[in-house]
Amino acid sequence: MAKKSLIQREHKRKKLEEKYRLIRQSLKKKSKDSSLSQKQKIEIQRKLQSLPRNSAPIRLHRRCLFTGRPRAHYRDFGLSGHILREMVHACLLPGATKSSW
């Protein structure tokens, strides 16, 4: 189980990312405009850099829904590897079977 403080930090990052998403997208769109001068592009880049670091979507981690574990995360199920295995053993995931050889 992940520490509660790390999970709360991740929630805070997610809220910040949602808050600044539109601003970040509009600034990135403006910076790709070829009709702008170099000075204008630099100014747009400064505005982008002035946004909080934790508002960048790259800083978000996917976490397991049950344990909060950030590693060994399966996107299809939203679970970490060992929880996925336990649920497949218990037949709680329809269509998933445990392979054995």
Rank of each mutant, 00 (worst) to 15 (best):
E17F: 08
L6S: 05
R9C: 04
L16G: 05
E17H: 09
K29N: 11
V88T: 15
E17C: 13
L51Q: 14
R63P: 01
R46I: 04
S55R: 05
R13M: 04
K12P: 02
D33H: 02
H61V: 05
H82W: 15
R24W: 00
I7T: 04
E86M: 14
E86C: 15
L6K: 13
R21D: 12
K19H: 06
K28C: 10
E86V: 09
S55L: 10
L27K: 01
V88R: 08
E86F: 06
R59D: 04
Q45F: 03
K19Q: 10
E10G: 10
R9I: 04
L22R: 14
T67C: 11
T67R: 02
P57Y: 08
R9Y: 02
S37C: 07
R24M: 04
E17V: 14
L6F: 01
Q25V: 06
K12I: 04
K41L: 02
Q8L: 02
K12N: 08
E10Y: 04
Y74G: 12
R24T: 03
E43H: 07
K32A: 01
R24E: 02
K39M: 11
G81F: 03
H82F: 09
K47Q: 15
F77I: 12
K32M: 02
A56M: 11
S80T: 10
R71F: 06
R63M: 00
S31I: 13
P52G: 10
N54E: 09
Y74E: 15
I83Y: 03
K47P: 07
H82T: 09
K47V: 05
L79G: 07
A56P: 00
H11M: 09
H73G: 00
K28F: 06
S80N: 15
L79M: 15
R53F: 12
R63Q: 00
Y20N: 07
K12H: 07
N54H: 09
Q38D: 13
E43Q: 12
P52Q: 06
P52N: 08
I58Q: 14
R63K: 00
L79N: 07
K41E: 04
R71W: 12
K29T: 08
E43F: 06
